[in-house]
């Protein structure tokens, strides 16, 4: 009798295992949202676990007090962009409907000090300013300025560096976004089944103790 049930269990187990092999593990269950700052714009990307994009889903942007600052709808690529409404911690909530929801927080520190300055003006200012020190050093060759000359203001330098960094880091942030959408692996599945077998063992043990008593 026990042998029969063992055989049935083994058959079922391998059937399930075979199905897992055929069907790639993916799920329409979990939604992910990820947002990053680029200049004075915030880009939001959303996906279901498994990589399907969340089209036409509602995005709501909240301030730390929970007030709605703005809202929008994701496009065909599951993306949504908006200008920074105010310099504060922003909570971005994706509402995919039917009880699916995810959120992402952007701390105020990730936003620029000057949200009004656009990328274009910052980029235009930056090269003009950085040329000045080289001109000076040409005028006085061999003499290294002992103290840094206050030609480029700290703010402008920061703005320039930030805009370049934003551009350079964009592919990396995108890669990080992709890395977030990890579907369940075979290891996860086997671990879950292992837990269930362990619980069955515990239940059987508890019952056997009760029987003895």
């Amino acid at each position: 009798m026990n042998l029969v049930s063992l055989k049935i269990f083994i058959v079922i187990f391998f059937c399930l295992y075979g199905l897992l092999g055929m069907v790639e593990p993916a799920s329409a269950h979990r939604v992910n949202v990820f947002a990053w700052v680029e200049g004075d714009t915030i880009h939001v990307q959303s996906k279901f676990a498994g990589g399907k994009r969340v089209k036409a889903a509602k995005i709501v942007v909240l301030d730390p007090q929970g007030n709605e600052l703005l809202s929008g709808i994701t496009n065909e690529q599951g993306e949504f962009s908006f200008p920074i409404p105010m310099r504060t911690d922003l909570k971005i909530v994706l509402i995919a409907g039917q009880g699916h929801q995810a959120e992402w927080t952007i701390p105020a520190a990730e936003m620029k000090d000057l949200p009004l300055a656009t990328d274009a003006t910052a980029a235009a200012k930056a090269p003009a300013q950085t040329q000045k020190p080289t001109q000076i050093s040409e005028l006085s060759p061999g003499i290294k300025p002992e103290s840094p000359l206050p030609v480029v203001s700290l703010q402008e330098l920061e703005a320039a560096i930030e805009s370049v960094l934003d551009r350079k880091l964009k592919p990396i942030s995108k890669m990080l976004v992709e890395a977030q959408y990890r579907g369940p692996t075979v290891g996860d599945i086997l671990a879950g089944i292992g837990y269930i077998l362990g619980l069955v063992g515990i239940a059987a043990y508890v019952h056997s103790r009760k029987k003895k008593e």
Binding site: S5, F9, I12, L16, L19, L20, V23, P25, A26, S27, A28, H29, P184, I189, G192, I193, I196, L197, L199, V200, A203, A204, H207, S208, K211
Partner: peptide, 24 residues
């Protein structure tokens, strides 16, 4: 209601339910 004889069955079906949501 889960008596000794049905523990293994419950475990098997829990495992089936656990995995079923991955079969698309």
């Amino acid at each position: 209601k889960l008596d000794y004889d049905h523990i293994a069955k419950a475990g098997m079906l829990a495992a089936a339910f656990f995995v079923a949501s991955l079969i698309h």
